[in-house]
Amino acid sequence: MIQRRTLAAVLPLFAAAALLPGLALAQAPPWPTKQSIRIISPYAPGGTTDVLARLLAQPLQQKLGQTVIVENKGGAGGNVGTDYVAKAAPDGYTLLLAASGPIVISPSLYAKIPYDSIKDFTFVAPIANASFVVLANPASGITSIKDLIARAKKGEKINFASAGSGTPQHIIGEMFNQAAGIKMQHIPYKGSGPAMNDLLAGQVPISFENPVPAMPHVKAGKVKVLASTGAVRSAAFPDIPTVAELGLPGFDAKPWYGLMAPAGLDPAIAKKLNDAVREALSSTEMKARLFTLGAEPMAMTTPEFQAFAEKDRDKWTKVVKTSGATPD
C-alpha cells in the first residue's frame, strides 16, 4: 500500500517534469521583439568605433526588422564601455562595437581590468581591420618619417596624440618609439574624435590613427600622412608607404573591430547576428564605404572570431612588454 501511494504521489511530478522542456520552448521569447537593439561604442563620438557602429546600424536594422541605435560610452581607453557590455544581460539587445584595444591590449597593459576579455563575451562577428596611419599637422614642419625620427633624436620635444591609454593608437606610438630609438611623449585623449581635433588645431604635432576618422582630413589637406603601419601597403591607399619601407623593417600593426555581446548569448541569436553582419559587409555599397575609409571587411564564424581574438591577444601581449608601454 505504501509503495502504491508513493508511486501515485511521484508520477505527477514525473509528468510535470516531462512537460518542462516543451513549456520552456514555448515560453522562450522571440528575438528581436519591439525592444531596440543598442550598439555600444566604447569611445567618444567621431572616432572609428562610432563611425563603424553607425555604418553597421542601418543594414542591421533593415535585416533584423528592429530599431538599432548607437550609444557612446567612452572612458579609460575603451574599457568603460567594454565593461558595460560585459555586465549587461546576454539577451541580444546590448551589443559592443569592439575595438581590439580593450580586448587584446588592455589585459597586458593594466594591472587589473574589470572584465575578462575572452570569457566575459560572445564573439559575434568581426567587422573590419585597418592599417593605421602616422599623421602630422602641416604647421609642425615634420615632413617625413625620417624627419620625425631625426628631430626626436636631436632632442626636440615631440608629443603624439592617441585615443586613450591602452588603445592601439597608444601602443603603436610606443612601438614606433621603441623601433626608432626615440621617446615621443604620449598624450591620451578620450577617443579618436578629440585627439583628431587637437591634431587639426596644432595642439599636438603627431598622431597614430585609424584611417577611418583621418582620411577625410587628409583629403582636405588639413593633415599630412607620413606612413601606414601595416606590414604591406593598404589596398585602399597604395600610394602611402609603410613605416617598414621607410627605415623600420619588421614594423607591423593592423588593429581590428568587431561586434560582440555579453557571455551567454543564445547561440541562435549569435548566428543570426553573424549572418546579418556578414551579409551587410558583403554588399558592394558597404565594401566601397569601408574601402574609402581605409578599412577592409572581415568574415568569420563566431568560433573562428574568438579563436582569432585569443591568438591576437597573445601577439599584443608580447608587443606591450617589448614596447615598455604603461598606462598614463
Rank of each mutant, 00 (worst) to 15 (best):
T143M: 01
T143C: 00
T143S: 03
S144N: 03
I145H: 06
K146M: 10
K146Q: 15
D147N: 15
D147F: 09
D147S: 11
L148N: 10
L148E: 13
L148D: 10
L148F: 13
L148K: 09
I149V: 15
I149E: 07
I149G: 05
I149H: 07
R151M: 08
R151T: 06
R151Y: 06
R151V: 02
R151E: 07
A152S: 11
K153M: 00
K153S: 03
K153I: 03
K153Q: 12
K154V: 04
K154W: 02
G155R: 10
G155E: 11
G155K: 13
E156I: 02
E156P: 02
K157S: 07
K157W: 00
K157L: 03
I158F: 12
I158Q: 12
I158G: 07
I158S: 08
I158T: 15
F160K: 09
F160Q: 12
F160L: 07
A161M: 12
A161L: 06
A161Q: 09
S162W: 04
A163L: 01
G164E: 03
G164C: 05
G164T: 05
G164Q: 02
G164R: 03
S165N: 06
S165D: 14
S165L: 00
G166H: 06
G166K: 02
G166S: 03
G166C: 03
G166V: 01
G166E: 04
G166I: 02
G166Q: 04
T167Q: 00
T167W: 00
P168H: 00
P168W: 01
P168F: 00
Q169D: 15
Q169A: 01
Q169E: 15
H170V: 00
I171N: 02
I171C: 03
I171E: 04
I172E: 11
I172S: 01
G173R: 05
G173E: 03
E174K: 08
M175V: 05
M175K: 14
F176K: 08
F176P: 03
N177I: 01
N177Y: 02
Q178I: 05
Q178A: 10
Q178E: 14
Q178T: 14
Q178M: 05
A179N: 14
A180N: 11
G181H: 14
I182D: 11
I182Q: 08
K183I: 05
K183R: 15
M184H: 08
M184N: 09
M184K: 11
M184C: 05
Q185A: 11
Q185N: 14
Q185H: 13
Q185C: 00
H186P: 01
H186R: 06
P188H: 13
P188D: 09
P188C: 06
P188W: 09
Y189L: 03
K190Q: 15
K190T: 13
K190D: 13
G191L: 13
S192H: 14
S192R: 05
G193V: 11
G193P: 12
G193K: 15
G193W: 15
P194H: 15
P194D: 15
A195M: 12
A195C: 07
A195P: 09
M196D: 09
M196P: 05
M196Y: 06
N197L: 08
N197P: 01
D198N: 14
D198S: 12
D198V: 00
D198C: 04
D198L: 01
L199F: 01
L200Q: 09
L200R: 15
